[in-house]
Computed example of a mutant assay.
Amino acid sequence: MVILSIDGNEMLYGPSVLEWEMAFYYTDEPVHIYLLENYIWHDILVNRIVKEKVMETWISRERDEFFQ
């Protein structure tokens, strides 16, 4: 997914996979912008947590329990 947020007021988004139809979408709808900006923040936050050695064993244990 490619997400380009412009000042939190406008956004372009679409697939990043070349095999998919290359259709990008424009929105100035505040709810869509809020959700997609938080999608980005969630991804950044999860990657930061995974990098922490303290969290590594907790994440592995939780993942294993979830998929049992």
Rank of each mutant, 00 (worst) to 15 (best):
L4S: 10
M22A: 14
Y25L: 04
M1G: 06
P15N: 10
Q68H: 07
I6Q: 04
L45A: 15
V46L: 13
Y13H: 14
D7L: 12
H32G: 03
G8A: 01
S5Q: 08
W20M: 13
S16G: 15
D43E: 14
W41D: 12
F67S: 03
G14M: 02
Q68E: 05
M22G: 13
K51T: 08
S16K: 14
A23K: 15
V2L: 13
P30K: 03
M1W: 07
R48K: 15
I40E: 14
K51M: 10
G14V: 08
R63P: 00
E29H: 11
L36M: 13
K53V: 10
F66T: 02
N47P: 00
E37H: 07
N9F: 09
D28I: 00
A23I: 13
L18K: 12
E52H: 08
E56K: 07
R48G: 12
V54Y: 09
K53S: 07
E56V: 04
W58M: 06
V46C: 03
N47F: 05
V54I: 09
Y13T: 02
G8F: 00
H42C: 14
K53I: 10
H42P: 01
R63L: 04
N38M: 11
I59L: 09
W58P: 01
L18E: 14
I49N: 01
L36I: 06
M22P: 07
I3P: 00
L35T: 08
T27A: 06
D7T: 11
V46N: 04
P15G: 03
I59A: 05
E19L: 12
E62W: 05
G14S: 07
V2F: 13
D64E: 05
E65W: 02
V50T: 11
W41S: 12
I6V: 10
P15A: 02
H32R: 05
I33P: 00
T27W: 07
S60G: 02
E52V: 12
E19S: 12
